[in-house]
Structures are given as C-alpha cells and as structure tokens.
C-alpha cells in the first residue's frame, strides 16, 4: 500500500509545481515586499508590519474598501434576485429554450475591456446612444462628472454583463426538479410563492451558492470596467480597492504599501467568501424553525 501511495504523489506533482509557479511563488514575492522597504538599487530594509499598519490606518484605504463593499452589495442585491426571477420566467421546453439560452449567453461572451469600451461610448453625452438619448429627454446625465451617474453606469453595466451567469446557473438547477414536485404542490394547494420557497429555492440552493460566490468575488475584484469607463472618477468616487491598488503600485511605485494592501485585500476576499459559504450552507437549518412560526 505504501509504495502505491507514493506513486499517487508522483501523479499530483506536476499540478503542485504548476500551482507553486503560478500562485505560491508570486504570493511569496508579495509577502516579501510587504515587510520591507526599498530605495532602489535592490537594497531592502526590514520594516516589519509597518506597511500593514499604515495601510490599515489610512483614510484612502478605508474609503476604497467601503466603495468596493457597497458596490459588491449592490451587485449581489440586484443580480441574484433578478437572475432567479429571469430563470423562473424562462420556458422549460420547446424551441424557445435554446433561443433564450443563446440570448442569455451573449453578454458572457464579450471580453471585459470591450464591455467597458462599449458602455464608455454608449453613455457619452456627445455621441453615445444612451447619454445623448437621456440628454435629449432633458435628463442631466454625465458619468464623467456626476458621482451618482458614474455608479449607476457601472452597476447597470455589470448587471447587463453578469446577470446571465446567475440566470444560467439557476435555470440549470430549476430544470433538474422533477415534474412530480410541482404536481404534488398543486395538489397541496401551494401558492406560487410557497412553491418557490419550499421547492424551487431549496433545490437551487447549491447552484445559487456558486452564483453568489462567483458574483461576490468578481465584483469585489472589479477593475477593467471602471478603469475603462470612469478611470476611478469623478474624483475618487469610483476608485475601488483594485484601482487604488494599481495606482499605488504602478502609478506611485509604492511597492511596500501596495504589497501589504494586496495581501489585506486577498484576506478580505477569502474571509467574506468563507462567511458567504458558511451562512448559505447553514441557511436551511434555520429555515425550519422560521417556517414553524408563521
């Protein structure tokens, strides 16, 4: 048995090497930067947790973090219910199914930067269809100057781009529910809401968890779209953590604080993902007592 176990290690070795080269080694470099200072010439000084303290204390980081959290919260609050609603409304059989699926898949096929560019042009007041249209309706819309407009543009863009993912995941969960469940519910006189709450939701919970995690991580790390559309502006109003980080690292070349910040960033994502996972997997344990009382 022992010998064969060693053989198994041999099999996963290439994968481990790949992960090491692509993830762990760069991560260690970042860790390395985060605890040292440099004045160029490849000279490094040990600074301990100084960078971390600096980042955590800085107003700039707090603001960026709040913006990012708010953005993710809004994205989840819109895309998840909307995605479920669209999935519920989609036909379950017939040729309309493939039509709907293709339609849903279309936005997902467009690269990030192209999406950004499309909306950047689309929203421009001078030549963009949306911007110009709104302006001609007398609505004062300008995402380069108005904070609210910039946020609205980014959120609508993300909803347009990524709700499909939630729809497709939920739809796959919904079509796997056997027809007898619906028949039984009809016989039990269940309302539309009761069917959703006690049949559909429990059955799509697993895929919904994946959808929430993916959308959270993705929106929390959003970079390309705001970079292309608003460039973080107007002012700093759409400077999310990712944009801030790049500005700090590439713009100001503050490698130490940037490294510390990216590690903090990484840990926040890890922590929040874990929280989502734990909460959602234990959700149905609580659901029982909740239903018992109404």
């Amino acid at each position: 048995m022992k010998v064969q176990n060693n053989k198994a290690w041999l099999m996963v070795l290439p994968m481990l090497l790949l992960v090491a080269v692509s993830a762990i080694i760069p991560l260690m470099t970042v860790v390395n930067y985060s605890v040292q200072d440099t004045f160029g010439n490849n000279e490094f000084f040990w600074v301990g947790t100084e960078w971390f303290q600096e980042v955590l204390a800085s107003e700039r980081f707090h603001n960026a973090l709040q913006r990012t959290l708010l953005f993710s919260a809004l994205i989840l609050a819109i895309e998840i219910p909307l995605g479920i609603a669209i999935a519920l409304a989609m036909p379950r059989r017939g040729i309309a199914v493939s039509f709907c699926l293709v339609l849903m898949a279309l936005p997902l096929l467009i690269p990030w930067n192209v999406v950004g560019t499309i909306w950047q042009v689309f929203g421009r007041v001078d030549i963009g269809l949306l911007g110009h249209g709104l302006a001609s309706l007398g609505i004062d819309y300008n995402y380069t100057q108005n904070t609210l407009d910039a946020w609205a543009t980014l959120i609508i863009m993300d909803v347009w781009h990524w709700t499909s993912l939630v729809v497709l995941l939920c739809y796959s969960g919904l079509v796997s529910i056997p027809e007898v469940y619906y028949q039984a519910a009809r016989i039990d006189g269940a309302s539309r809401w009761a069917i959703f709450r006690f049949i559909q939701l429990p059955k799509i919970k697993r895929v919904l968890l994946i959808a929430v995690l993916l959308r959270f991580m993705d929106s929390f790390m959003i970079y390309t779209e705001p970079f292309v559309v608003t460039g973080g502006g107007p002012g700093n109003s759409t400077t999310f953590l990712s944009i801030d980080l790049v500005q700090m690292a590439v713009g100001q070349f503050d490698l130490g604080p940037a490294a510390a910040m990216s590690l903090i960033y990484f840990l926040i994502i890890l922590l929040l993902s874990w929280v989502f996972y734990t909460v959602m997997t234990s959700l149905d344990n609580d659901a029982t007592s909740e239903q018992g009382r109404h």
């Binding site: 056997p178 007898v180 469940y181 028949q183 039984a184 016989i187 039990d188 006189g189 269940a190 309302s191 009761a194 006690f198 049949i199 429990p202 059955k203 149905d284 659901a287 029982t288 239903q291 018992g292």
Partner: peptide, 24 residues
C-alpha cells in the same frame, strides 16, 4: 396523490410537511 418517488418538502419537518396543505 402519492407518487412513485417520494415527494417531501426537504427543508420542512415532518409535522410541517403535514401542515403544509392546511396552511396553504
């Protein structure tokens, strides 16, 4: 109706399953 494959509301308890048609 009782179907070939058992249909229960997974997230509910036994008693709540029985109460379901009455609540509705």
């Amino acid at each position: 109706q009782v179907f070939q494959f058992p249909v229960v509301y997974d997230t509910l308890t036994v008693a709540e399953n029985l109460a379901f048609p009455l609540r509705n």
